[in-house]
């Protein structure tokens, strides 16, 4: 019955059934609560993690399909507690308010900027169409990501 997953480079075993959404296993079994369970239908992006390097909404991914895949969560973005360049620039730009959407936004932008390192504001906005932020009105976080892209 157990499902073996590779999460942030570690082998983890879930006792849940294979159709269980990844988000529930991450949060409830592995206590990786960075990814947030907000809409549970892929509209808000708050639960985004990486599967084999690609952003995936973990509310829609059953763990049974993820064996052998490399899962990474927001908790893995910082290395040795040193925030990633994206996390740092978000902090510098004073982007955060309530903060609930950021784990997902960071995972989406990390994946997106890897593929389009020189993206401009419009492309960044298009990449964020699946992420809801209710506090900030987006512009400042788009500015921060665009500033990072200019640095690349």
């Amino acid at each position: 019955m157990a499902t073996t997953l590779t999460v942030n480079g570690e082998r983890r075993v879930s006792a849940r059934g294979p159709m269980t959404a990844l988000i529930d296993v991450l949060r409830d079994e592995f206590f990786l609560t960075g990814a947030k369970s907000v809409c549970r239908e892929g509209a808000c992006g708050a639960c985004t993690v990486h599967v084999d390097g690609q952003p995936v909404v973990s509310c829609l991914a059953p763990i049974g399909t993820l064996e052998g895949r490399e899962i990474r969560t927001v908790e893995s973005l910082a290395e040795a507690s040193e925030p990633s360049a994206l996390q740092q620039i978000m902090e510098e730009h004073d982007v955060v308010q309530c903060g609930m959407c950021f784990p997902g936004i960071l995972m989406v932008l990390t994946g997106f900027l890897r593929e389009c390192p020189h993206a401009g504001r419009d492309e960044i906005k298009a990449a964020l169409v699946g992420n809801i932020c209710r506090c900030t009105g987006y512009e400042r976080l788009v500015d921060a990501a665009a500033a990072l892209a200019r640095r690349n």
Partner: peptide, 23 residues
């Protein structure tokens, strides 16, 4: 002053524990 938010770092690291994250 433009005092930075003291809670920004942990919110960005995914470490902040909101009520929904507690058990």
């Amino acid at each position: 002053m433009g005092l930075p938010r003291r809670d920004a770092r942990d919110k960005l690291l995914g470490r902040t524990r909101y009520t929904v994250d507690r058990a």
